[in-house]
Structures are given as C-alpha cells and as structure tokens.
Amino acid sequence: MFAVTGDLFEPRERAKYQGYSAMIFAVSSIAGPLIGGFLTDHASWRWVFYINLPLGVLATVTTVLFLRLPKPEGKPRVDYAGIVLLGAAVTCFTLVTSWAGTRYAWGSPVVLGLAAGAVVLFAVWVLVERTAAEPVIPLRLFRDRSFAVACVVAAVGGATGFGLAVYLPMFFQVVGGVGATESGLLLLPMMIGLLVASMGAGRYIERTGRYHRLPAASMGVSVVGVALLATMDTGTGLLTAGCFMAVLGFGAGLSQQVVMLIAQNAASRRDMGAASSGVFATRMLGTAGGMAVFGSIVASRFAEEVGRRVPDGQVPAFGDAVRPEVLDVLPQPVRDGVAEAFSAAFSELFVAALPLLVVGLVVAFLLPQVPLAARER
C-alpha cells in the first residue's frame, strides 16, 4: 500500500494521502475488535473469519478495476534466497517474542535456540543480500542516514505506541473493573490522538515541505504521554486515563506516516517498494519486541506485588488474573489486592519504556532535512 502511494503521488501530496491511510487504520483498529466481539457473542467465532471473505473479494475487484500503476521496466529478478532467509529470521524472532516469558522461560533452551537462530539467519541474510541482483531490501539503503533514522524511529514508535497499547485494555479490565468490550472502547482517545496528529502532520508537510523535526516531536510528546501513564493507579479516573492515552496517541501519530515518507524520499524509484517495506518491517519488529519485553516486565512485577498484597493460597497467576471469569469469583479483598498489584506492575512497565523513547528522541535529532523531490528519481 505504501509503495503504491509512493508511485501515485508526489512527496508533498503523498504526505496528505498517507494521513488518510492513518485515518483508515485508526477506524479499523477500533471497529475491527468491536465487530469481532459482537459476532463472537451473537453468532460464532467463525464469523470473525467469514466476514473477511466478501471484504477481500470487494477489495480485489476494486483493485483490479481501478488501480492503474506504471509498468515496470524489464522483468524483475526475484530474490528467493533473501525472501526465505529473512522470513525464517523474522519467524524465529516472532516466536521468541511470543513464547519468551510465557510458554517458556527467557533462559530456556527453546528461547535461546530461537534467538540464536534469528541472529544467525539475519547474518546470513545480510551476506546473501550483498551479492543479490535485486535484493529484498538493498543494504545500500541503510547507508543513507535518513532511511536509517526512519527505521529506528519506526521501531521505537512501534514498541512504545502499539506495544504498550496491547496492555492498556488489561489495565482497565483488572484495575478499572470494566468489561472486555468497554476496555477496547477506552482505546478510542489514543486512536483519535493518533488520527489528529497523522492528518495534521500530512497537511503540514503538504503546505511547507518540511518534515525533519516531526520525528523528534513524536518521540518528545510520546515521552510525556508515557510518563503520564506511569502515574496511573487504582484511583485514576477513566477521563484522566483517556487524556493520558490521547497524548501518547498524538505522539505516535506525528511519526506514524512521516517515517514512511522520509524513507521513500531517501530512496530511488527502483527502491521505493523496498524502502517502504523496510520501514514497515522494522515497525512490526519493534512492536513484537516491545510486546515481549513489556509483557515479561508486567508478569514478573505482578508476581512480586501480588505475593505481598494477597494472602498465601489465594494468589492468582498472571494469566488467570486477566480473565474476567476468574476475577469475578475472587473475594473482594483478594480482588482489591490483585488490582493494586496490577497497578504497580503497569507503572513499572511505563517507566521501563521511557529510556527507549529517549534513545528514539536522540536518534530523531540526527535526521537531516532533505528537500522533498518534485518527482521521484
């Protein structure tokens, strides 16, 4: 999608349309889980998948009938070795982030083996890409400071924005005592903040052609948002929490689409797709890594806190504490202790995210102001 936007529009105009993409993302992020929950409650969980079939057909037909792109020159040479190696490396990394601290301990042979496999596969992939005729992600892109900064900011934004957002509904369910559907709706302020910032950044770039301070502003505002979230406890009202999340969403939105524009502006036309996918991939890897690390922090800190606040023999495991059917049957003193333990664990989670954002802020200041090209090279 991002590469298509790069082909269709000039850089200044592209920023505006990437803002529209952010709007669609924000709406779908809210509507998707709500519709899925409704279908699961009133029909069947299978309809969560069935409903995507007509939507997919509609998207395919629309693309075939209306999308017109420039024809590529020559026949592309597919980098099969690079695709396989990168896919295998990302798979190992994803399994590490999914299993470490949950299914297996961080020091278990399975997790260590997968981590070692990811490192080795990434190293071999780099060696293969150096000699590939048309590599999946040309390594020359990383020698461009703009592209490298965009990747770092995208990874940090993914970890601290989307990585933290995954755990916020848990906070509202356990600490605030709201239901699963309501906790999803409580993410609305964050999505609105992200939407407003993305649209505003796109309009600003379209008018001025300037963008190089937006990633730094994104990291700075996100620092404020995460610091505010770190102050939440069992007495924090939903309105106050919503305001804090709106600040974090606004910070994430300032760089959500801008990093893609920066990467595309740094790449030649032949590398447009690779640059777009490279930034998107680093954001997803940052999100996966952030979810794993932050999840481990919450689980370990919760185990410490709940042991001090709940009597022996009544201490629930972290996985049970986030299940409504378990919370509903706990005695009120035990439930209060679980809520306080969760609150303390989440405060540490947000504090742990601050150094990562500071690194992103420092790196963002290294971004040069490269004029947006009138036409792609």
Rank of each mutant, 00 (worst) to 15 (best):
I192V: 15
L195R: 06
M191E: 03
V96C: 06
A345S: 14
T63V: 15
E182G: 10
P371W: 00
L141W: 05
L53K: 02
D7F: 09
V61S: 11
F2N: 08
K16N: 07
G273M: 07
A118I: 09
V166E: 03
A373V: 09
V259Q: 04
G6T: 01
F9D: 02
T40C: 10
G101D: 02
T282A: 11
T5Y: 09
G235D: 15
K71H: 04
N52S: 13
L127T: 10
P311H: 04
L65T: 08
G193C: 06
P215T: 02
S222A: 15
R270W: 03
I297T: 06
V4W: 01
P371N: 00
V175A: 14
F244S: 12
R130T: 11
L248Q: 06
V223F: 13
E134C: 12
S29Y: 08
T231V: 15
D41P: 10
Y17G: 10
D144A: 13
L139R: 03
L254H: 03
L164D: 00
V149W: 03
G36M: 07
V224Y: 03
S44W: 01
I24P: 11
L55K: 04
V329R: 13
L372P: 08
G74C: 12
L349G: 06
G235C: 13
G209C: 08
Y20P: 12
G32C: 10
F244R: 08
V259A: 05
L238S: 14
Q369K: 15
V326H: 07
L85V: 07
G286A: 11
F25W: 04
L186H: 07
F244V: 13
G200N: 01
E129N: 10
G176S: 10
E73T: 12
F38I: 11
L112F: 06
G176A: 13
T5Q: 09
Q257A: 11
A159W: 00
K75Y: 06
T102W: 00
V221H: 05
G36L: 08
A352E: 00
V153Q: 01
M1H: 04
T208S: 15
F350L: 05
R68W: 02
L356S: 08
A148N: 13
G87E: 02
F93K: 01
G202Y: 03
F250I: 10
